[in-house]
């Protein structure tokens, strides 16, 4: 094989790991979430966040939004593995369709007095967070925003007496006139 210079291909390339947001439309039947979550754990994929609720009650259809990470080839595998589950109707990679709107909601409880309490109020108003509950020593704020915004907000609140966080995970939708 003279035209073949080497028996082996190039050295292994390190592929970059990217974050993808997937929208999955499924039949809302018992066990469907276990099927999807189990697929991720069984095949060693990551779930960064997962949100699910029935979106069409008449047709019993739910929309699941999963944020996952992986190399391009792993993301491709994840999508085709999801696609072959019987109750899955569609899998759309919102990261590939470009510039999707991604939001999540978080609730934070901060406890403190004096300067900390004043600073917490200032930060909350700077981020545009809503006050859902207040006592003389505590606040519960609600913030809706991108994951990065939420992360920043939580990090700042940690310094002024954050005691509890609850987050929904990402809900996402492609921009523009076209529906999924």
């Amino acid at each position: 094989m003279s035209q073949m210079s080497t028996h082996y291909p190039d050295a292994t390339r390190i592929e970059t790991v990217n974050r993808h947001t997937l929208a999955i439309v499924v039949d809302n039947e018992p066990g469907v979430l276990a099927r999807i979550a189990g697929l991720f754990s069984g095949r060693g994929y990551n779930i960064e966040s997962l949100t699910v609720t029935e979106t069409e009650h008449e047709a019993h259809i739910s929309r699941i939004t999963i944020v996952t990470t992986g190399t391009d080839s792993i993301i491709e595998q994840i999508k085709s593995q999801l696609g072959r589950l019987v109750p899955v109707h569609r899998v759309v990679d919102l990261t590939l369709t470009g510039d999707a709107v991604e939001r999540e909601l978080c609730l934070v409880k901060v406890v403190g007095k004096g300067d900390h309490r004043v600073e917490a109020m200032r930060l909350a108003s700077a981020f545009g967070a809503r006050t859902l509950d207040a006592t003389l020593t505590s606040f519960v704020y609600e913030l809706t925003g991108s994951t990065e915004e939420v992360e920043r907000f939580i990090k700042l609140m940690t310094a002024v007496g954050l005691v509890e966080v609850s987050r929904t995970g990402v809900a996402a939708m492609a921009r523009g006139a076209e529906g999924m």
Binding site: H7, Y8, S73, E76, Q77, S80, Q81, R84
Partner: peptide
């Protein structure tokens, strides 16, 4: 895997999309 059929163009016919490039 990294030494599998190093000189070939590959055609893959499969009914299961998840078999492709797995």
């Amino acid at each position: 895997l990294d030494a599998f059929s190093p000189y070939s163009k590959r055609i893959h016919v499969d009914i299961d999309p998840s078999s492709i490039n797995k």
